[in-house]
Amino acid sequence: MVIHLNEKLCVGCQLCLEVCPTGCFEFDEQAKKARLILPLSCLDCKACELNCEGNAIKIEKSLFQNFFAQLI
């Protein structure tokens, strides 16, 4: 599983920060956009993808990408 945040599409609503249960995102106050800071902590719950107002977040299924990085 790989999480992508397209910062160009981010509208700065901060919903991703509000719904993420593992703190994958932070808010860049200067750019007024969300930033992905802990992609490996993502639980694949898809709450951010479902609620993102700018459709800026995409979660892709990928079994072998980041295989060991995620498990360790």
């Binding site: 719904v19 709450a47 951010c48 479902l50």
Partner: peptide, 25 residues
Amino acid sequence: PQLSAAGIDHMKLKQEGWDAKFGPI
């Protein structure tokens, strides 16, 4: 509840006139 965000699209509630917020876990 925050964890309901995995299934609830808050925009759909907004369209029905409800201002939905995700509270604590």
